[in-house]
Every structure is written in C-alpha cells, then in structure tokens.
C-alpha cells in the first residue's frame, strides 16, 4: 500500500517517535545511572552536579567491596539453590499437570479442572498459607521457597494451551504403537513445546530470583537468607555497610557500593533477558489469545 503522507501525519509520527525515545530513556536510565555511580570515584561523585552520562572518574572499589562480602555470596548461593531445585520441581509438576489437563476423555478431568480454577480465585490468604507451610515442617527451610510455589496455575494453563495446539493424531499414533502417556509427554509434547518451556523457565526463574515475600515470612536463620533479603537489609535499611574509609566522601562510597550491589544482583537477569525476549512475548501471546 502506498501511503500518502500529509503534514499532519508526519507531525504525528515525529511526535510518537519523540515520546517513544523519551520513554525508552526513562526505562533505561536508572540502570545506566547505577552503573555510572558504581564505577565513580567518591570525590568526583560528590562534586558532580546534574545528570550523569559517564562514571565520574573510574574505580572498581565498590565491586571489590561487594564481591568480598560474605553475606552477598551466601545470598547468591541460597538463591541459586532455590532456582536450580525450584525449576526442576516447577517444570516437572507443571508439565505433568498441563498434560493431564489436555486429556479431556479421562475420568475426573472435569472436577479437577474446576478445583484448579476455583483456587485461582479463592485462597485462604496469608495466615492459613503460613500455618500450612509451618505444619509441613518447612519453616526456616529453603524448601519453603520451592514447594509452595511449585505450580503457578497461570503458567500451567499457558502450557496446556500450547500442548493443545499439538495435533491429537500424534497422540493416537503413539497409543496405537503401544506407547504410554509418559512417552507422549516426554517424546512428543515437550520436544514440540520448547518455546513454551523456555517461557516457563523464564517466568519461574525470574520469580525465584526476585521472590521476597516468602523469604521474608519463612526464612529466619541468617545463613539461609536469599539474595533479595540481603539486598533489602543492605540497600534499604543500610545496615552492615562497614566501609573502611571514614572520609568526608563516606556517603558517596556507600552510594557506589549500593549501586554496585544493584548491578551485581541484576546482571544475571539482564544477561538472559535478550535471549529469552522473543520467547516470552510469544508465550504470553499464546496464553492471551487462547484463553
């Protein structure tokens, strides 16, 4: 189609472009600013006025401080444990559940589907949930961050929608050849749903990485603190920041360290983000179009 561009249309396009560039900068700049601050020299940072477009000076002290801090490493280790074990549990339970939900001819299919949908809208709330986890003996255990969030109903329905787009004839041919449901799931459904599995990996993974609430209510021992708990204590409460140099630029040193902490704790997500981006948008589209 050949577009005739009127002056009004051109103005509109320019207007939209300007807004979009501005918005992108608003989204991106806070992170860039943290990077600049984390590499800045305290005195130059102190003297700096206005927006920053590069680090004020250059030094890596903040990163040395963060990476030599024991608590940060403890947090990293615990969070990593929760992510690795959590993802195995998440993906196993979610794909088994999603597979069951696609088998409509099976008895109990309907009542179980209804049960799941009901739990999406009604929940016992914070305290019954807390008491349940306590009853299970998971209080102050890292498994309290794994089992209670093993299935997200939303993710399971998303995966089911994806499974449903696989032709039923494939299932029938396996059944005729004497294969069972495990063969269908692991040999056909999962290999054919890799984009959807990537979305699951991303959603659950980011969820584990960022989870704060469950860690706050269940984890009490310091050696079991996850990264987000430690970040909160250091970034917001400002505790445990024993900086050697008690100089006039003390506040700037602390600021650089906090910025470095933000960067160090966000880098893993920023690294996988570009690779998974094409999948997660696609995955969400499947869910929203089919439901």
């Amino acid at each position: 189609m050949v577009e005739r561009k009127t002056p009004g249309e051109i103005t509109l396009n320019v207007f939209i472009t300007v807004i979009m560039v501005f918005l992108s900068l608003i989204m991106l700049y806070p992170m860039l600013y943290e990077i600049f601050v984390s590499f800045s020299e305290p005195l130059k940072l102190f003297r700096h006025r206005g927006l920053m477009f590069a680090p004020a000076g250059f030094r890596t002290y903040a990163y040395e401080w963060v990476l030599s801090d024991k608590e940060i490493w403890t947090g990293y280790k615990n969070t990593l444990f929760v992510i690795v074990v959590g993802l195995v549990v998440n993906l196993t339970l979610t794909s088994l559940g999603a597979y069951f939900l696609t088998r409509k001819d099976c008895m109990w299919h309907k009542p179980i589907t209804i049960l799941i949908l009901i739990t999406m809208y009604f929940s016992g709330g914070m305290i019954p949930f807390f008491l349940t986890v306590k009853d299970l003996g998971l209080y102050d255990s890292l498994f309290a961050l794994i089992f209670p969030t093993a299935i997200s109903t939303y993710n399971m329905i998303l995966l089911r929608s994806y499974f449903q787009s696989i032709p039923e004839s494939l299932v029938e041919s396996v059944l005729i050849d004497g294969g069972g449901h495990f063969t269908i799931l692991f040999r056909i459904f999962i290999p054919l749903s890799l984009p959807a599995m990537a979305v699951m990996l991303l959603y659950y993974g980011v969820g584990h990485w960022n989870t704060y609430f469950n860690a706050l209510i269940f984890i009490k021992t310091k050696s079991k603190f996850t990264l987000q708990l430690i970040l909160r204590n250091m970034l917001i409460m400002g505790s445990n920041l024993d900086v050697d140099e008690q100089t006039a630029e003390y506040e700037q040193v602390v600021e650089s360290i906090k910025a470095a902490m933000v960067i160090v704790s966000t880098v893993p997500i920023l690294c996988i983000y570009p690779f998974l981006q094409k999948y997660f948008v696609g995955g969400l589209m499947i869910g929203s179009l089919k439901e």
């Binding site: 992108s24 806070p30 980011v206 970040l231 600021e255």
Partner: peptide, 30 residues
C-alpha cells in the same frame, strides 16, 4: 527496540527497585 526497553523494569525485584529509589532520592542522589 522500544518494546524490549519498556519490558525491562518488570524483571527487577522490588528490593532492587526500592533500593534504586533510595539511591535516586537520597540526600546525595540524582
């Protein structure tokens, strides 16, 4: 390109985001 930038903040945790706000609005912040 615009989409990938506006989606980004969604992946930050609240601890990090509130930490960012503290750094931005603090006495020596931006």
């Amino acid at each position: 390109a615009v989409q990938s930038m506006v989606y980004l903040p969604h992946f930050l945790s609240w601890s990090v985001l509130v930490g960012l706000v503290y750094v931005f609005l603090g006495s020596t912040g931006l």
